[in-house]
Amino acid sequence: MTDAATLYGLCGAALVGIGLYGLIVQAPLLRKILAFNLIGSGVFLLLGAIAERAAPGRGDPVPHALIITGIVVALSATALAVALLLRLAGATGRSTLSPEPPPPAPGERNGG
């Protein structure tokens, strides 16, 4: 059963890498939020692999409880990030953090 723990642990490590790449490279903020969630679940999977190693077949309940807490907190952080993004889009019409915004009509929009 240790094989399964190692396999999913490696999967978690790869997910952290994939998520971090998306977070760095993608410009749209919604994509960054999605990538951030991928990093989070990769970390949870690493923790899950450790739980499985500690008690093969049934898992260590303490990391499991930590992971459930983490999933819920990740959702609340995601909801706050989405609300910030929607407010940014409402105020500026943009959904990226491009440093030099190409304003469609300068002076027409004022931040709300």
């Binding site: 723990a5 679940s41 499985e52 499991h64 999933i71």
Partner: peptide
């Protein structure tokens, strides 16, 4: 597969 059915429920519902 990792024996974490509680987490599986949370992941499917929340994640």
């Amino acid at each position: 597969r990792l024996g974490a059915e509680n987490v599986a429920l949370a992941e499917a519902a929340i994640g």
